[in-house]
Nucleic acid binder design. Structure first.
Lengths: 189, 189
DNA sequence: GTCTATAGGTAGATAGAC
DNA sequence: GTCTATCTACCTATAGAC
């Protein structure tokens, strides 16, 4: 007796499982068949919803971006007001705290970002654009704090990503947010 | 007219090419056949030297460790003398400078470290052990500078790895060593 | 919307000739 | 030591039944 799902719910369920599977094995390392089994379907059934493996990957990334849009926009308002150091630290801490609640997502992006270094990877363009945007947003955030905001943005992003990966490597054995707050306090003048 | 190689030279040549190929596609993403072609051999010929794909990966890691042993030992002497802040910064800078000359190696380790998050990855144990050792060495290095050296070690390692990955993502468009020196100066009290 | 069946390709690994 | 040939297994994707 299987529960019937409508198109939207089924797609959403597949995408959620795909986040975990791709995060574990990478885009190249996972198979449609394996993902389909975890969704209690056949591979053909799954491909009915997403035409190809590549389309599935891009759908995962789009899906996540749509979900995160509001939260990100709230932290980085378009009118970009000048910020005090305390405000900046609070924004960064909130970002990390958000990620600390979504380890599968942190893992997905860590995996794909490295895999997508290869120019022929289907997510290569996506990550080039995404990282450029992240650097720009961070540089704007730091505009009032230093005369080389691009440089600081690079270092802060690197430290943040590095610490999140370390947190996964150590099986989340330390307090990510507390440790990040310490790093940020040292890194930002 | 092909150049004949003896066993040692052939193995070394394969391992060098494997560093590049695995760094580009990951362990799961590359094929023995592709690697063999880049070495101007067949897959069967290559497997004569390394019994299996997994054995090849472990041979790559062993090979690198043997090559790096001396350089690392010189930077982290076993008698572990107390260090001044300036000495510590110099050691870290030397480590990063060394990596800046070996981008294929940085990429290999970045790729494998993420891939090997999965417990069934053939290099999983290797990286668990390796990261623990790195944290211990760094903590020893920071012993005289702070009363929470393990905590600082984690943050410095994370920032270093994160910046090296950023450097690859941006196609080495910034000066890795200079940027790292700036980060380290801020991070280490 | 999900299935079975299958096409068509590529993978890792082995056997045996040279 | 390297080759050709081959085995077995798995992959993505499609066609068509229900």
């Amino acid at each position: 007796m299987r529960t019937r799902m409508n198109r939207e719910d089924r797609r959403a369920a597949i995408l959620d499982t795909a986040i975990a599977v791709i995060g574990e094995r990478g885009f190249r390392g996972f198979s449609i068949r394996d993902l389909a089994m975890r969704c209690a379907m056949t591979d053909a059934g799954l491909l009915h919803h997403f035409g190809s493996k590549t389309d599935l990957l891009l759908a995962v990334l789009d899906h996540r971006d749509a979900q995160d849009e509001h939260a990100i926009a709230a932290l980085f308002p378009a009118d970009a007001p000048p910020r005090t150091r305390a405000e900046v630290l609070r924004v960064l801490s909130a970002l990390v705290a958000r990620n600390a609640e979504r380890p599968e997502l942190v893992r997905l992006y860590a995996m794909l970002r490295v895999e997508a270094l290869a120019a022929d990877h289907p997510a290569h363009r996506y990550f080039v654009t995404r990282d450029r945007l992240a650097r720009r947003r961070f540089a704007e955030l730091f505009g009032a704090l230093t005369d080389t905001p691009e440089n600081l943005a690079r270092q802060v992003l690197a430290a943040m990503d590095g610490l999140e990966l370390q947190w996964l490597l150590e099986d989340r054995a330390f307090d990510l947010v507390a440790t990040w707050n310490e790093t940020a306090d040292r890194l930002i003048a």
